[in-house]
Design a protein around this nucleic acid. Structure first.
Length: 489
RNA sequence: GACCCCUUCGUCUAGUGGUCAGGACGCUGGCCUCUCACGUCGGUAACGGGGGUUCGAAUCCCCCAGGGGUCGCCA
């Protein structure tokens, strides 16, 4: 079987991660079977046009690696791939339906429709087109058209009976035809509704698997009726459950973290986001959790898609992102971290590579970086109490001695020799010389250099990062703080 | 409200009549350690409820409850 899948977004101006996941699945299925992945723009709602929205679709798909084989910019045998450019095709197909008795012209205006719905609601019935124009004679119809009366074309749902369709994730579903509405197929502006365009285009473009959100599940019987009316083969339907914010609400753009770009801006890696999305509502059937896009394409299978909505867990995404960050080489990590480091560090005379090194194993997302670095440019005010660390048994006195010894040892290192290895040798040598535990020396040094309880990296790294002058002056500051504290005792 | 769909640890999930119900995140205890993290070893926690079918049900059937979706000249 030739697999042809499509991603058919409407240009809304941002890429919702739920949509992106649907695109991912469509892409993976195509790649898995050596098939074709198609991009189609569904811009039939002229009122919702957003400038630049199509570019966001392009750039996001490129960034994520979901490269399409046919599309508006690439062309292909089934173009055009923009629905607003396919207008004549829909008209032609709508007429075919009308000729076959599967659709009809409707001249009802908004006022009548509103009134009708209001009445039906008042009577406690479900709003549904009342079939007013269903039986309009052909001559009457021509007369109204000639008179310039606006019209739409509606689908004629068969009276009575049932329609059954099969979904690859939900199985067989049967509904009573009477619960289905005579929906508009062709709007008065001549453009098709989604209900019509998706059927015509999916068939004309040879789509084998229609992968889309679950919100279309309940309209699928109508689409089936359309395929049948045309005498077309019915594609395989794959409806994906929604991505939720919590048990009640869908993840929405209003929450500010539903768009792909939001995650990238916060310092999540593309690879981590895509990996996480793949596993949200789909399982490979094994315990494996880390996949590249290419690896996903190998193992992807429709049967792994789950039936129930999945809650998006930012905490787990962050963990996965950390995994990806940690797997980077030091050079790669430095390149990605540098812009975030510079948000917090304005000084230029610091050891950036050491900052990155010290951050590497401590960063889940890049936006976590700046707050960790707030002590580098300027030493915060801190209390001498911080020198006392119970577990390491440091005291004011021991800390004062350590700081003085450290000052003496480091003072002998020239500016040019101020590197990590030298500092390490000097401070560890001090530990050995004094015959004490590492912490007796290193705890107070780290506190004096950072003024903080927790820091990325230890005293040696921080000394290297902030440089000789700053190190010596901060040690000085620590010494006087401690002397003051001891005097007060 | 009507119609359709869904329901395993807090979360993502594995599981398709016989498992101590597995993994991951989180939380938590130990180890490592100059702090925090990383790493590592352990712990915690689930089959929505009720009826059946069966020697035996998370797995099959029915009912209920809860949740979701749809009911537009939006997609």
């Amino acid at each position: 079987m030739i697999v042809r899948t499509r991603f058919a977004p409407s240009p809304t101006g941002y890429m919702h991660v739920g949509n992106l996941r649907t695109a991912l699945y469509a892409y993976l299925l195509a790649r898995k079977h050596g098939g074709t992945f198609i991009l189609r723009i569904e811009d039939t709602d002229q009122e919702r046009e957003v400038a630049g929205a199509v570019d966001i679709i392009y750039s996001t798909l490129r960034q994520t690696g979901l490269l399409w084989d046919e599309g508006p910019d690439k062309g292909g045998p089934c173009g055009p791939y923009v629905q607003s450019e396919r207008k004549p095709i829909y008209r032609q197909h709508a007429d075919m339906l009308v000729d076959g008795g599967h659709a009809y012209y409707c001249f009802c205006d908004k006022e009548r429709l509103d009134l009708m719905r209001k009445r039906q609601e008042a009577e406690g019935k479900q709003p549904k087109y009342d079939g007013h124009c269903r039986t309009l004679p052909r001559v009457e119809r021509e007369k109204l058209i000639a008179a310039g009366k606006p019209w739409v074309i509606r689908q004629r749902i068969p009276d009575g009976g049932t329609t059954t369709f099969k979904d690859e994730v939900f199985g067989e579903i049967t509904v009573e035809n009477d619960t289905l509405d005579d929906n508009v197929l062709l709007k008065s502006d001549g453009l098709p509704t989604y209900n019509f365009a998706n059927v015509v285009d999916d068939h004309l473009m040879g789509i084998s698997h229609v992968i889309r959100g679950m919100e279309y599940l309940s309209s699928s019987p109508k689409y089936n009726l359309l395929y049948t009316a045309f005498g077309w083969d019915i594609p395989k339907y794959v409806h994906c459950p929604p991505v939720m914010r919590d048990a009640q609400r869908k993840l929405s753009k209003r929450d500010g973290d539903a768009s792909y770009q939001d995650f990238i801006d916060k310092g999540y890696l593309n690879e981590a986001v895509m990996n996480y999305l793949a596993l949200l509502g789909w399982s490979p059937g094994t315990d494996r959790e880390k996949f590249t896009l290419a690896e996903l394409a190998e193992v992807f299978d429709i049967t792994g898609i789950s039936k129930s909505p999945a809650i998006f867990d930012p905490v787990k995404l962050a963990w996965l992102n950390g995994e990806y960050l940690r797997a980077l080489t030091p050079e790669e990590f430095t390149a990605k971290a540098l812009p975030f480091i510079k948000q917090a560090v304005k000084r230029e005379d610091v050891a950036f590579s050491t900052i990155a090194a010290v951050l590497h194993q401590r960063t889940e997302k890049l936006s976590d970086i700046p707050p960790q670095l707030d002590f580098i440019d300027t030493l915060p005010d801190y209390s001498p109490e911080m020198f006392i660390h119970k577990k390491s048994k440091t005291t004011f006195e021991s800390s004062l001695a350590s700081l003085k010894a450290a000052r003496e040892a480091l003072d002998t290192i020239p500016e040019g020799g101020w590197d990590h290895a030298t500092l390490h040798a000097a401070l560890m040598g001090l530990v050995e010389k004094l015959g004490v535990k590492n912490a007796i020396v290193l705890w107070p040094v780290r506190v004096a250099l950072s003024g903080k309880e927790f820091t990325p990296g230890g005293g040696i790294e921080i000394a290297h990062i902030i440089g000789r002058n700053e190190t010596l002056s901060r040690l000085e500051r620590g010494i006087s703080l401690l002397e003051g504290a001891i005097r007060k005792q």
